[in-house]
Write a protein that binds this DNA or RNA. Structure first.
Lengths: 165, 165
DNA sequence: CCTTATTAAATTGTGCCCAATAGAATTGCG
DNA sequence: CGCAATTCTATTGGGCACAATTTAATAAGG
């Protein structure tokens, strides 16, 4: 039995991209019950992860997070982040304020409630690891090649920054 | 230097789920220039893949595709598919028609233009393989564990079908 | 039969995502 | 300085994704 390359590669279940697309959606759905107690969506949770990190232990007042730096970490632009941050602000988890030095910039920070939410989130990674059926090694084994692909895609289509040759 | 487990696992760049989420979005974006000549989006392309398969060589008139069977393949429900199929219908690529035997069911089929589009799509998998920087083996090595995770997630949260014990 | 479940799609409402554009502030340069 | 590029955020508009509800048709049980 002979298949043409095209026939085989066009089959949905042979495609990596579809596996990626479907799994990503399924994972996001799997977060819903874990995030419900926190009252946030998965993209909102990602914003909080970045803010918790920036807020973190050593020398807390590093450069404050902005819409742009958040977008740099999450690969999202203001078109997505602005309304999302407004919802987090309405939920009283984050603050948004124009920078005094540069009025173009909007600083994003955690409220006390937002900081406090971190405690309730600490069990989530372990719960997801269990839901996915993967241990730490297996997670790394899957994560690292994905980050390689991601880096390559961002290289060929950089998120607006200068491309150095 | 000692990190608590929670600290390490909450770091964005350690998370598999974020790598999945970010890579999936980047991949969808990478499809845009490849799909632009066909005039469809990535989810619309996925629907066409399923229809092309069902339309395919051996014994063409297998059971006709329906909104439900399409959703079964793509893990999407009518809330997503109905408007998407209406757009594909408006683009004259697919047909939608109530089944005569069961008026609840909507048959989805390809128009001549939809069938013809397959030719223009045949180069896409190879182009993506190149854009991702992965050969066939590497694609399989990444795809198969993703499908395992996907299967597990669909098992714990089945898409509405009966759960057998 | 005839009523009650069940099923398939469609609809509604909320929240992403992203491209394109617009506004406003700042920077660079002549 | 003055003004043209640049930068940062917000806005607009289209297209997913999904939960929850609705509508219509069929199946099942008494």
């Amino acid at each position: 039995m002979v298949f043409s390359v095209d026939d085989t590669w066009l089959l949905l279940d042979n495609q990596l991209c579809f596996a990626l697309y479907a799994t990503s959606r399924a994972v996001t759905k799997a977060y819903a019950p874990l995030l419900a107690p926190l009252g946030v969506t998965y993209p909102q949770y990602l914003v909080l992860l970045v803010l918790w990190e920036a807020d973190g232990g050593t020398t807390p007042p590093g450069a404050p997070m902005t819409v742009g730096s958040l977008g740099g970490r999450l690969f999202l632009d203001s078109g997505t982040l602005t309304p999302l941050l407004k919802r987090l602000e309405a939920a009283k988890l984050v603050t948004r304020a124009r920078s005094a030095e540069d009025e173009r910039v909007v600083h994003v920070g955690l409220t006390a409630a937002g900081r406090k939410l971190r405690k309730k989130a600490e069990g989530i990674p372990a719960a997801m690891s269990c839901a996915l059926g993967l241990n730490g090694d297996q997670i790394a084994t899957l994560r690292d090649p994905l980050r390689k692909v991601l880096a390559r895609l961002h290289q060929s289509s950089p998120a607006e920054e200068e491309v150095r040759d």
